[in-house]
Design a protein around this nucleic acid. Structure first.
Lengths: 237, 237
DNA sequence: CTGTATTTTTGGATTGAACCAATTTCGGCA
DNA sequence: TGCCGAAATTGGTTCAATCCAAAAATACAG
């Protein structure tokens, strides 16, 4: 069946299809569009809805299952196991022992250089992925949990953009610790809508700087983001 | 054996096909039928030989890669990374994908600050532990493998000395990658006795600077050590 | 109304066939 | 000999179609 015609909306998208599915589902989970313990649509249904093959959906679900976000039962369905309020989600053991100040110290070491490397090395496709996350962030500003989760993804994409797997691995530890820290902070209601708006402005500026390949500007915005986190995590106000 | 293509009918074995492939390849690896660093047959070849689809072979290779038994490079092939003689080093999976340059970049980011924090925060007891490792290093200068391992311990103690568990966790990843890189370097016999002597002098100076709480001096020696590693790891031949 | 048998749905596994992108190989030209 | 570009090789990704087995939904007999 040598069929090279791409039927309408792409029947063979280049590279990032699985990632797209993961992102989509992850967003729906953290925004509780698919609530905890709820059943998600069947694989066949998701495939059709998202316009991809079931294989691709499966691959995405495999990874979500590995991350402990869902659980699957043959013949029954896939269910959300991620609990945004619950403290049980899979953080690496080390994350629990990290104090907010230690976290900020480490971020201060790694983030400035990471930002520089990312601005230099990010591909157009990666920048595009960044903008997708950014717009999702704008859509969920009312939900602090979802916002922080997307924020984390934003940072992770930057780390990926450096093209340095070692840096990415290290930064994943940093993000684990940050998630842990923010859980406490949010519990104390320090992440208000007003603050989220401030964050959003910062990330918009950061993205523009990246897209313009402006190293100094990007580095500056990164520092601001770091300082803003510091306000919340170290409760200096 | 299927001469041409396995046509209709029988070609669908229930259940344990992937497991069978994994078992087969695992056996061939540990028996050194596929020796360490050796390239295994292409996925298409394996699929044909084992009478399964390439997808199935891929799934099996995915898992072997996750277990750190093999490493894959697009366009090049899959290579055995498992070394039956090698130390039980439990290298994290990420370490295999880190190039020497990427390693040095990451070290350049983290080590200078780490050194400063360590000089400030190390307890006398930790400094004592450092001196113990240092003297062990002098005793094993003839054995490059042992020397590198102690060197690693020396670095780890410094990371511990910062008192920052997050930094330590990140630096452990760095050390994993460094160990991997040095394995290759030693295989190429770049770590000569003369070089080891140079290292030893560097570490002695570094220790004295730490003991004297001289931040700038320590930072300087740290840089020298980094540059020396660079000579070995980035050497082209 | 109940309990069982049948059908349908759902995840799981495998095949086969593209197409893409990074590498390597190789042939030919200077 | 040395270099460069085309061609072949190789892993990476996605799609489509089956078949299987566990669960759930439904139909039906009692």
């Amino acid at each position: 069946m040598s069929n090279s015609s791409l039927p309408s909306s792409g029947a063979y998208l280049p590279g990032a299809t699985v990632k797209y599915v993961i992102e989509t589902l992850l967003t729906r989970i953290v925004t509780q569009e698919y609530a905890s313990e709820e059943r998600l649509p069947s694989e066949r249904q998701l495939a059709q809805d998202l316009g991809v093959a079931r294989n691709t959906v499966r691959e995405a679900l495999d990874q979500l299952e590995a991350r402990g976000m869902i659980r699957r039962r043959a013949g029954s369905g896939s269910f959300v196991t991620y609990d945004p309020d619950g403290e049980a989600s899979a953080t690496s053991p080390v994350a629990a022992d990290v104090g907010p100040l230690q976290l900020q110290v480490m971020r201060g070491i790694i983030e400035p250089e990471m930002m520089r490397l990312a601005v230099i090395n990010m591909t157009p496709r990666q920048i595009e992925a960044l903008s997708v996350v950014l717009s999702k962030m704008e859509a969920v500003q009312a939900d602090a949990t979802a916002f922080v989760r997307l924020e984390e993804e934003f940072h992770r994409l930057i780390a990926e953009g450096t093209g340095n797997p070692l840096l990415l691995a290290c930064y994943n530890l940093v993000l684990d610790a940050r998630r842990q820290a923010f859980r406490t902070a949010m519990y104390r209601r320090h992440l208000t809508p007003a603050r989220i708006a401030i964050y959003q402005r910062g990330y918009n500026g950061l993205f523009n700087a990246i897209a313009a390949r402006d190293i100094e500007e990007a580095s500056e915005f990164m520092k601001l983001s770091l300082i803003e986190d510091q306000r919340i995590l170290l409760q200096e106000d």
